[in-house]
């Protein structure tokens, strides 16, 4: 399990670089490194379905973020109430960590899950659905309502993006902005 710790520390370092670096493009690429490391961690934890999905989704996410940040290097401003902001943020993180560490003791030990529901799926999944991939039978047969909700959310997101991006009825405003810029 030592490789798991190494990969997790690599991901934390990547996240810190992504947060603290000034250039936006470098930050986005560091997030890509974190996501690809996460894909390898999924593979080590014996979740090949999730690993494939994470790999391809990460690539698409990276392309979208690079499209957004290309040629837009904005100067990094830290003026204003940075001291108060940092104090509040650190206080929130400390409260969160204490609560989380207290609740960690109630979790089952790492490597020994409870599997109360999953026992039924593993025992009867092949006979009830005929699919040898248990994850596919869970998302499309036992818990198909989750997938229906996911489809609804995806549909809403596509409609939202198309609504935000559309040009019809906005021409006058844009011309005014152009004049103000010049």
């Amino acid at each position: 399990m030592i490789e798991l710790y190494i990969l997790l520390i690599f991901m934390i370092i990547g996240a810190i670089i992504a947060i603290e670096v000034k250039d936006l493009l470098s930050s986005v690429i560091a997030v890509g490194a974190v996501g690809l490391g996460l894909s390898i961690v999924f593979l080590i934890l014996k979740a090949p379905d999730v690993a494939i999905t994470q790999l391809v989704v990460e690539i698409l996410c990276l392309i979208i973020l690079i499209r957004a940040t290309l040629k837009k290097d904005i100067p990094f401003s830290t003026s204003g109430r940075w001291f108060l902001n940092t104090l509040i943020t650190l206080g929130f993180i400390i409260i969160f960590l204490t609560v989380a560490i207290k609740s960690l003791s109630d979790l089952p030990e790492f490597g020994y899950p409870m599997m109360r529901v999953a026992k039924t799926y593993l025992r009867e999944g092949l006979a009830k659905t005929g699919a040898s991939n248990i994850v596919a039978s869970v998302i499309l047969d036992f818990r198909a309502y989750d997938t229906l909700g996911e489809a609804t959310i995806l549909f809403t997101a596509v409609i939202g993006v198309l609504t935000i991006v559309r040009r019809i009825g906005r021409k006058k405003e844009n011309q005014q902005i152009e004049e103000e810029d010049e």
């Binding site: 392309i63 659905t129 596509v158 198309l162």
Partner: peptide, 25 residues
């Protein structure tokens, strides 16, 4: 496996076309 491959095809159409539409936009 009955309806599971058909559901897979429907979901792949939805996810693929939806993400392509987002990217194009």
């Amino acid at each position: 496996a009955g309806i599971i491959p058909l559901c897979n095809i429907a979901i792949s159409l939805k996810v693929g076309a939806g993400l392509f539409a987002i990217f194009v936009a």
